[in-house]
Amino acid sequence: MARIPAAERRTELVAAAVRMIAAHGVDGATTRRIAQEANAPLATLHYCFATKETLFAAVYEYVAGQYREVLLRNDVHGDVATTARALLRGVMEWYLANPDFGAAIIELISWAQRQEGKQAEMVYSEAFGTTRPILEAAATAAGQTIDSNTIDALTYIVSALSDGFALNWLVFTDRGAARTQVELTLGVLDAWMAANLGDASVPVAEAAKVPKASKASPEETMRSLVSWVGAS
C-alpha cells in the first residue's frame, strides 16, 4: 500500500473530524471515531495531532478556510447589490450542498463559547474579513459611494441571514422548502438594501434604464415584501 503523505493525511483527518462533529457533536467526536472515519490507524491521528485540542484548532481553521473559499468563488465582481446577493446565495447554496459543514459549524461555535476560547470568533472574523473587502471593492468598481458603517452593516446582514437560513435548513431538512426560503431570504436582503443603500440598491445596469421618478421608495419596497410574505 502506498504511503500517504503527512499533509494529505492531516487533511483527511480534519475532514473526518468535521463529519464526526456533525454526526455526534464535539464531545461525541472521539479520536477513535475520527480515525475510523478517515480509515486511518489511531496512532496516525496522534502522530499528526499531538492533542485533541490541536486537531480541533485545525478543524476551525479548515472550516473558516472553506467559508472564505465559498465567498471568493461567489464574488461576481459586480456592483454592491448584485455582489451582496451573489455572496448570500452562494453561502446558502453551499449549506444546502454541504449539511455536514453547517452542522459542524454550529456545534463548534456552541462548544467554543462554553470553553471561553477565541476559536468561535475565527469563523466570523474570517467571514467578515472576506466579505467586507469584496463589497467595498464592488462599490469602488461600480463608482458607488457607500459609507463605511453601511458596508459594515451590509456585511453583518449577509452573515446573519445566511446563519438563520443554515439553522432552519439543519432543523427541518426540507429541501423543497429550503429552495423557496433561499429566495425569501434574498428578498429580505433586497428590502434591507432598498431601505439603506438608496440608488446603490439597484444594479448599475438596471439603474441606467429606470427613470428616477419610477423607482420604488424603500417604504414601498418593504411593504411589497411584507405583502408577499403574508400572501405566501
Score class of each variant (00 low, 15 high):
residue 1 M to D: 10
residue 2 A to T: 15
residue 3 R to H: 07
residue 12 E to N: 07
residue 14 V to A: 06
residue 15 A to R: 15
residue 26 V to T: 06
residue 30 T to D: 00
residue 33 R to V: 01
residue 33 R to L: 05
residue 37 E to Q: 14
residue 42 L to M: 00
residue 44 T to A: 12
residue 45 L to P: 02
residue 46 H to L: 05
residue 48 C to T: 13
residue 50 A to V: 12
residue 50 A to T: 14
residue 52 K to V: 09
residue 58 A to Y: 14
residue 60 Y to G: 10
residue 61 E to K: 13
residue 62 Y to F: 09
residue 67 Y to W: 14
residue 67 Y to M: 10
residue 69 E to V: 13
residue 72 L to T: 15
residue 77 H to C: 13
residue 80 V to D: 06
residue 81 A to R: 01
residue 87 L to I: 00
residue 88 L to P: 01
residue 92 M to D: 02
residue 92 M to C: 10
residue 93 E to T: 06
residue 94 W to Q: 07
residue 95 Y to T: 06
residue 96 L to A: 02
residue 97 A to I: 08
residue 98 N to V: 05
residue 98 N to Q: 12
residue 99 P to H: 08
residue 99 P to G: 08
residue 103 A to L: 12
residue 106 I to P: 01
residue 109 I to L: 14
residue 109 I to A: 07
residue 113 Q to P: 01
residue 114 R to T: 01
residue 118 K to G: 04
residue 121 E to N: 14
residue 121 E to Q: 15
residue 122 M to P: 10
residue 130 T to K: 07
residue 132 R to Q: 08
residue 133 P to A: 03
residue 134 I to Q: 06
residue 135 L to R: 00
residue 135 L to H: 02
residue 137 A to D: 13
residue 144 Q to V: 03
residue 148 S to I: 12
residue 148 S to P: 09
residue 149 N to L: 13
residue 151 I to V: 14
residue 156 Y to S: 07
residue 158 V to Y: 02
residue 174 D to M: 00
residue 176 G to K: 02
residue 176 G to I: 01
residue 184 L to Q: 09
residue 184 L to N: 08
residue 185 T to H: 09
residue 188 V to L: 13
residue 190 D to W: 13
residue 194 A to D: 14
residue 197 L to R: 10
residue 197 L to W: 09
residue 200 A to K: 03
residue 201 S to Q: 04
residue 202 V to I: 15
residue 207 A to G: 02
residue 213 A to P: 00
residue 215 K to H: 06
residue 218 P to T: 04
residue 222 M to V: 15
residue 222 M to G: 03
residue 225 L to V: 05
residue 227 S to R: 11
residue 228 W to V: 03
